[in-house]
């Protein structure tokens, strides 16, 4: 059942024809930030709820090394799934995450230039930076910033990270998170995410829509997340990943506190973090399944947080000595 939407206002077709497709939007933003000194990374290949949870953000913001990176991150939020029936909501949406560490003093201007690059002429739009602070209890992270509103639509989250994994950050990191589906729907002037043109064949002009690419995925994952996921097994998975994550962290501690540089560099902190991400995703699945009771909820969040904080500490400890890598990707 798709929502019927009455369109009474005249849409500006001129805008529509020249609007970027979904994949062009991604290329353009990646190209924009690449030209401004960002490493382009690929989406992280473990389930995450947001681009922030990718190690390219969660771990790279820790410690003193400057780092600038941009990447698209498909972000899974099982509870937000709507079986593909709601035109504005997705189980899995795509964030374009830009990390600027430290933030350049013209970071807002850079961001506004990126909007111009994707075809938004600010002289013909209303843009506002409205207070919106970000906090993730499971990651022990928070920052202050804005939601960027374009003609009444929230298109970007803009955050100055202050703390991550329970660790105070220095330098601070600037994080820009574009909601790609929203921006694409805005640029193409469609009322349903599923009507977004994902790509257009250059020769034939044939368009492939977002719905054609992703609708089945939304439906099937909603069915799994809400109905089929085996609660018992999810708990077991959570326990297993947690136990392994914890055991590895415990085992790593003496090495990370020691002097042996080679042994320290071999501590698999990055792999341990994957186990922590697995736990976070399993928590989200259990939550969507309605399997976490009131009394359990706080406890499970605390369990995941403990892992995240442990990984952040281990990563920082490892960087302190191993950190001889050259400074990479500073935005000019």
């Amino acid at each position: 059942m798709r929502m019927k939407t009455a369109v009474t206002t005249a849409t500006s077709n001129a805008v529509l024809k020249s609007a970027l497709t979904f994949q062009e939007l991604l290329f353009t933003l990646q190209g924009f930030w690449s030209a401004r000194g960002c490493i382009l990374q690929q989406p992280y290949d473990v389930e995450v709820g947001a681009g922030t949870m990718s190690p390219e953000t969660f771990l790279r913001v820790l410690g003193p090394k400057p780092y600038s990176v941009a990447y698209a991150q498909p972000s899974r939020r099982p509870a937000d799934g709507r079986y593909g029936e709601n035109p504005n909501r997705l189980f899995k949406h795509t964030q374009l995450q830009v990390i600027l560490k430290p933030p350049p003093s013209n970071i807002q201007e850079l961001y506004l230039e990126s909007l111009a690059a994707i075809g938004i002429d600010l002289r013909q739009h209303d843009i506002k930076f409205e207070e919106d602070n970000w906090e993730s209890p499971t990651l022990g992270a928070w920052g202050v910033g804005w939601q960027v509103m374009l003609d009444g639509l929230e298109i970007t989250q803009f955050t100055y990270f202050q703390q991550c994994g329970g660790i105070d950050l220095d330098p601070i990191t600037g994080e820009i998170t574009y909601g790609l589906e929203r921006i694409a729907a805005f640029l193409q002037d469609v009322d349903s995410i599923y009507d977004i043109v994902w790509m257009r064949d250059a020769k034939t002009g044939r368009a492939v829509t977002y719905g054609e690419v992703r609708l089945a995925e939304e439906l099937q994952f909603s069915v799994y997340n809400f109905e089929k996921a085996d609660v018992e097994k999810l708990w077991q998975h959570l326990d297993l990943y947690e136990a392994e994550c914890k055991a590895l962290l415990d085992a790593a501690r003496p090495t990370l506190e020691g002097e042996d540089a080679v042994a320290r560099s071999r501590v698999p902190v990055l792999a341990i973090f994957d186990l922590c991400l697995k736990c976070s995703h399993l928590f989200n699945l259990l939550d969507a399944r309605g399997a976490i009771s009131v009394t359990e909820r706080v406890g499970v969040i605390a369990r995941v947080r403990a892992l995240a904080v442990g990984v952040a500490k281990a990563y920082t400890a490892q960087q302190t000595v191993v950190g001889s890598a050259a400074v990479i990707g500073a935005v000019s």
Binding site: T9, T11, S12, P87, Q124, H125, G152, L153, D189, D191
Partner: peptide
């Protein structure tokens, strides 16, 4: 017209 249309779109959604 553009800004009105954008605001109407969000509100309609």
């Amino acid at each position: 017209a553009i800004i009105r249309h954008g605001n109407e779109r969000v509100l309609r959604a």
